[in-house]
Design a protein around this nucleic acid. Structure first.
Lengths: 115, 115
DNA sequence: ATCAGATATCGACGGGTGTCGATGTCTGAG
DNA sequence: CTCAGACATCGACACCCGTCGATATCTGAT
């Protein structure tokens, strides 16, 4: 319990001045997503059948080493963006919708939506 | 022209697998936002009167040095998230709505919106 | 011309990050 | 028990990042 991604975080960026505490809570989430490989990892997992993907499938989709992909998955998992499920020899990762929607709330600004 | 923020970027993260090129284009935007101070800077500017703020006001809102704030503003400007407008001795920064909405599109997933 | 104030830039420091090869750990099969 | 495969961890490397103090640059006022 108490995942890093379980933050209130629910004030859109442009609605009102953000508190320092809020910024400190949300920034790690964005930091975890601010990498091309990790962005594609989340995208691949979210778009996969059942919203989850086996590491063995993910490894083949990138030029980087298996160690590097494993590292990125750990970063995303530590940030609370991915869930880990080990089934036998394989490990499946799934996105945590609450985490993504927390970030989404940030950018879904009322006055900005039509821009 | 051709700001870093002027990217198509318009496939939600969870809709389909993201291309490597798309990821390479969007990641810098998230990287620029993935810092507590810069997050608050954007928020302060966006929530300010007229959607813009003078650096002199911003400096007072943080514990960091004027040099540090200036550096963060430069990062946000280089990423295409802020516009710069010098009026006499003062410099005003304003958010570029297109840039923020580009990021918003990423997280505004159709299937995820209700989560 | 001089000066004070507002921003930007510079150089440096400590710490974090992405990547790799090598190795460790776990699991199911034989 | 032993082995092969899947995944994680480790140690190392080059590089980037946030922060600061000091300094430069610009601008309006005197």
């Amino acid at each position: 319990m108490s995942d890093p991604a379980d933050v209130p975080c629910c004030t859109p960026l442009t609605a009102a001045a953000m508190s320092a505490e809020q910024a400190d809570q949300v920034a790690p989430l964005l930091k975890a997503l601010a990498d091309p490989v990790r962005l594609r990892l989340v995208s691949l997992i979210a778009a996969a059948e059942g919203g989850e993907a086996c590491v063995c499938e993910l490894n083949g989709a990138f030029d980087q080493t298996q160690a590097t992909i494993s590292h990125h998955l750990k970063v995303l998992h530590t940030a609370g963006l991915l869930e880990r499920d080990k089934r036998g020899v394989w490990v499946y990762y799934a996105v945590r919708p609450e985490a993504l929607s927390a970030v989404a709330t940030l950018f879904t600004a009322p006055a900005l939506a039509g821009a």
